[in-house]
Design a protein around this nucleic acid. Structure first.
Lengths: 129, 129
DNA sequence: AAGATAATGATAACTGTTATCATTACATCC
DNA sequence: GGATGTAATGATAACAGTTATCATTATCTT
């Protein structure tokens, strides 16, 4: 049985309280900043426990995993490679086309990840200027 | 100026000669098996040099990068989480819907990566049996 | 309160990858 | 064809993110 300890509660609260996409280090830092005492290993364990309980979601980026609060509608991510900004978007048609493509190959889909890279509006303007 | 040394030539030949998706370690192992002498650092450098010259392509998976031969039409990947099999697929409509979605957010797209996870036909049958 | 189970925290270990640096191969110009 | 500059090599150290270890502590039953 999983236990919802005070450390995990703190992680969950932190993530629930924002729209950010947190990595493990940021979570640890933020909690320590609020005066809490939590080890980095506990953060990692807490994050994956919370995810497996469905209490938070994650995206796996090239270098690290980032966590966000759960309960949002399914969405994918668009990442600005200049400033790191992460935008969310969803597109039902894309989703169902994916399903169809998988089926055609005989794949039983369990998940997918679509990440788009580019320059956000702000960075595009700055680069043009 | 980049040089196409014998080591890089060997890497390129290896990758060109198959449809596999190779990670750095597999490349090193395969070359050493053929009697070649190549250091792992050289493999890493060779792979990224070849990629930046457009001679090979790559996909970034959660844990590692995998390389495949270039010159194929653009495609995305479907990975069987049971046996590791990687299937390729492409879908023009999905591509253009992605473009449209990016534009709506003001993003100037430079790339994307769509990876789908699931069970391939063979593994699905085995699991059902 | 006792006993069982799970979480914690410090740290070692591990994986994939990049950096360092002395040595070697390559190309080019005279 | 030998000197010279440039880039690649290979062994290994270093690095980032993450997981494993293990003794200690907290938590949940009953």
């Amino acid at each position: 049985m999983q236990k919802l300890t005070s450390q995990r509660q703190a992680i969950l609260n932190l993530i629930n309280a924002s729209n950010r996409h947190w990595d493990a280090d940021e979570v640890a830092r933020a909690l320590v900043d609020t005066g809490a005492s939590i080890g980095i290993a506990t953060v990692y364990r807490g994050l994956s426990a919370l995810e497996s309980q469905g209490l938070i979601d994650s995206i796996q980026l090239a270098d690290k995993k980032r966590y966000e609060r759960a309960g949002k509608a399914h969405h994918d991510h668009m990442i600005c490679t200049s400033c790191g900004r992460i935008e969310e978007f969803s597109h039902d048609t894309i989703e169902s086309l994916q399903e169809a493509a998988a089926e055609k190959k005989g794949f039983k889909l369990t998940g997918h990840q679509l990440v788009m890279f580019g320059f956000c509006r702000k960075c595009t303007q700055e680069l043009d200027a």
